[in-house]
Amino acid sequence: MVVTEELQVYVVYATPQDEFILPMRVAPGTTIGQAIEGSGVLARYPDINLVTQPVGIYGKKKTLDTVLRERDRVEIYRSLVADPKDSRRRRAAKKG
C-alpha cells in the first residue's frame, strides 16, 4: 500500500478592508477549484464569483481545474478599480 503525503497550499483573497489567508493540507491531485471550495472563502465572501473572477497561483492566471503542487498559493483576483496605465499617466502629468 502506497501512502501519499498531503500537500501544503494556501488560499488567499483580499479586499480593501480585509484579507483571507488560509493554509490548507490537501490530497495530491486537488485542483484550484476544489481548494477554494474547501477553504470556506466562498462562504465568508459571498460576492466572489468564480465564473467571472480570475484565479491563479503566485500571480499567474490559471484555470479552476489546474492541479495544485506543494506550497502553491491559490489567489482569487478582484476587478481593478482603475486602469493602471491611466493612473500612471495622471501621476506623470502631475509631476510634469
Rank of each mutant, 00 (worst) to 15 (best):
E5A: 15
S87A: 15
G33M: 07
E37R: 13
T63L: 04
Y13C: 11
M1H: 10
K94Q: 12
V41I: 15
G38T: 00
V3K: 12
L42Q: 06
Y10E: 15
V67T: 13
R91N: 07
E70P: 10
E70L: 07
V81G: 03
I21T: 11
N49A: 12
P28W: 05
S39F: 10
V67K: 15
E37I: 09
E19A: 14
E19Q: 15
I57W: 02
R89K: 14
G96K: 14
R78P: 08
R90W: 07
K62L: 14
E37L: 10
L64E: 05
Y45R: 01
D65L: 05
I21P: 01
K95P: 03
I21N: 11
I21E: 12
G29Q: 10
P54S: 14
M24L: 15
T30H: 06
G96C: 05
M24K: 03
R44C: 09
T52R: 12
D83P: 03
V74K: 06
T4C: 10
Q8T: 14
R78S: 13
T4A: 14
D65A: 04
R71I: 09
T52P: 02
R78A: 09
I57T: 01
D86H: 05
I32F: 07
E5D: 15
R69M: 11
I21F: 05
I36E: 02
D18N: 15
S39H: 07
S79L: 13
T52D: 09
V3S: 09
R89G: 00
I36M: 00
D18Q: 15
Y58Q: 10
P16V: 08
S39R: 03
L7N: 08
V81D: 08
V55D: 05
T63G: 12
E70V: 12
T30D: 05
V11N: 06
D86I: 14
A43M: 05
Q17P: 01
L7R: 08
Y10Q: 12
V55Y: 00
T4D: 13
V3P: 00
D86G: 02
I21M: 07
R44E: 15
R25S: 14
P46C: 08
D18T: 11
R91M: 13
E75C: 03
L68G: 10
A35P: 11
L42F: 06
R73G: 08
T15R: 02
E5L: 11
M1A: 12
F20M: 08
E37H: 12
V74D: 03
R88G: 05
V11W: 02
Y45G: 03
T31W: 07
G38D: 05
A43Y: 01
V41K: 11
R90Q: 14
R44M: 10
K60T: 15
E75W: 00
R89Q: 09
P84E: 01
E37W: 02
R71G: 09
I57E: 01
V11F: 08
A14C: 05
D47I: 09
Y58T: 10
T66K: 03
A35S: 13
L22G: 00
D65M: 01
K95N: 08
G38L: 04
I76F: 06
E75Q: 10
V9Y: 07
T15C: 11
T66F: 09
V74P: 02
V81K: 06
V81F: 01
T15K: 04
I21H: 07
R25M: 11
T31E: 11
T30F: 04
S87C: 07
P23Y: 08
S87V: 15
V55S: 06
G59I: 12
I57C: 04
E5V: 10
K60P: 04
R78G: 02
S39W: 08
